[in-house]
Design a protein around this nucleic acid. Structure first.
Lengths: 341, 341
DNA sequence: AACGTTATCGGGAACGTTCTCATCAAGAAA
DNA sequence: TTTCTTGATGAGAACGTTCCCGATAACGTT
């Protein structure tokens, strides 16, 4: 029932714990006979080293923490998939935390992590988060941290992001080339890096085609559906309503689509839509949704690799120069944005 | 930079570790002045108890392991969401493992978990898994385990499942009432409990309406899309091809829909479709997909509650009688299965 | 004056490992 | 013979806590 320990083996075999420990890890200075004896006994009674004792001794847990806004979100669950794959291969465990877009919740999670049950941290900032001093402090205390997707300039460490500017630019340009001139942009929390970068890409595309930028066409949304209803209403009641919408995130794209449908607005005829989303069902939506897809799996893999390198390098105290890795997005054009024929 | 320990405090304040420890946990037998001194010092230098040391001492980690086939799957990510919510509230951490439907991978994960870095285990079996002796052994060794969704009769512990029989029965009956008489069933691995129960529900519905059961209409699939292509081809090349399909799981429903579309088969006219899926986009698919939705979030919550109760009861060694909790499914009827008007 | 209380505190074992130092016998070199 | 290697093993500290036992002083009781 209970797991056997090195002490138990030592007692049973009339050896010292030192000898057993060495025999188990195949030290050369142990008599082959003794070694065999110990190993066979360990085998027989299914000895497993206690990872917690190891952790205490070596002051590391071989596990990493991951804080995401929402696990039940295709983008993030794909990222976590990537993280898990790499971590698994390198012998680390993945401990999941959700911030639910809440600063307070994120803060509490960080506190847990600060009492280092984990060797490193992978985090994508919550929508509410405007102050990352706690994260910085943790980093300064020596915790290896890699930020992904929703990052911050205020902290100097590795970051892995999508090329949000390019993605938004290309998507907006596509809408323009399809003849749209009044393009709205529904995006997430204004604090988020992804938001800022995408807004920039959106504006840059408008500028390139000399289309005036109208602040009223840029809407910041949290993720509730009532909110989406409100936003769409606002946009439609403009004297000059939009003929195209660029939407950010899986949830917003879906919400936007649903809301427009209830209002019997034809897509793409009346309004074209492009989403930033990793929905696998995007091609089978009605209408098939044009989307900017992000390399979510790769983002998870890359982030995990960087973090684990950081963790393992830390011990050898090689100084590191931090970098920001930008992954390419891809615009997949489908019915929701094809007007011209 | 480094975290401070009780020893550090003791040294700095010229006290013993015992006193510091007691002061920190507010023991009555400590002089209020001393207590105040210690607490202020701890506060100032941001003392955090080392959870690993606690774990070693108390022989528990305050974290639970979760093994799911695939985290990047709406159903499971919703379940994990529920698990995380409960665990968070009760002060436990969630460690994620994926089996990728592979028995070997599941087995390796179980091995990791066996060297108990976790206090309990939540698991949904892999599609390949036919032999759960390892899981049973782990359970017999005293590891609290709760199975969810994909369970097994061979192990006696708490289980949380959807009413798969009822779900499949209702869905099949719905197709029959819509006039379908030749109903195929595309399902998952034959080893899985969910598969067996749903097949039973499907057959029971056919029996009720005295429709003959044709083994050729029941297809077991893994999750690759080539496989789906093959299955659909087989079904269509029957002398008596199906006019309705009941599909299990998010992935299969989506794959089935996509494949039928490429073959230009009209839904629901030529073939009606009902999926077992938790896709949020189901209502916006083309056509809107009739689905049996499972209470995934609740399943996660319930499972976590049961497991944590088990863990905390274990210490007081109150004997437990194990139960299987069945959660209700809901059939949401949409365009993909409505023929009659 | 001898003893019991009470209030505070310290010593040290224990959790499971690893690792640094011994220790000790046997054989080799002087 | 004496000293030096070499091979094989054990003792014990350390990682950070908690907790069981004392220990010590300052009192109060007889």
């Amino acid at each position: 029932m209970e797991l056997i320990t090195i002490k138990d083996i030592a007692k049973a075999l009339n050896l010292s714990t030192s000898t057993v420990s060495r025999a188990l890890r195949g030290s050369y200075e142990i008599n082959p006979d003794t070694k065999k004896l110990v190993i066979e006994y360990a085998e027989k009674y299914n000895y497993r080293p206690n990872p917690i004792a190891l952790s205490l001794k070596e002051n590391k847990s071989r596990s990493i923490g991951v804080i995401v806004p929402e696990i039940d979100n295709p983008f993030f669950s794909q990222v976590i998939n990537g993280i898990e794959a790499i971590s698994y291969n390198r012998g680390y465990h993945v401990v999941i935390f959700q911030s639910h877009e809440s600063f307070e919740r994120e803060s509490i999670n960080l506190k847990h992590i600060a009492s280092r049950r984990v060797d490193g941290l992978l985090i994508s900032l919550a929508g509410e988060t405007n102050d990352i001093s706690q994260l910085k402090e943790l980093h300064e205390k020596g915790m290896p941290i890699v930020l992904f997707d929703r990052v911050s300039d205020e902290i100097n460490t590795h970051k892995v992001i999508s090329d949000n500017f390019e993605g938004a630019f290309t998507a907006t340009e596509h809408l323009i080339r399809e003849g749209r001139r009044r393009i709205a942009h529904i995006t997430a929390s204004p604090y988020l890096s992804i938001t800022k970068e995408r807004v920039k890409g959106y504006i840059a595309a408008l500028n390139k085609y000399e289309i005036p930028v109208d602040k009223a066409m840029i809407k910041y949304s949290n993720y509730s559906s009532e909110n989406m209803e409100l936003i769409i209403d606002e946009l439609l009641s403009e004297t000059n309503p939009p003929d195209g919408i660029l939407t950010v995130s899986d949830r917003l794209a879906l919400g936007c689509l649903a809301t427009l449908k209830t209002k019997n607005i034809t897509i793409p005829e009346q309004i074209s839509i492009v989403g930033f989303t990793n929905l696998k069902a995007a091609s089978m939506l009605e209408p098939a949704l044009t989307t900017v897809v992000q390399p979510s799996l790769q983002m998870g893999q890359r982030s995990a690799e960087l973090l684990l390198d950081l963790i393992e390098r830390k011990s050898s105290s090689i100084p590191t120069t931090y970098q920001t890795f930008k992954l390419y997005t891809e615009l997949i054009i489908r019915d929701s944005s094809i007007v011209s024929i």
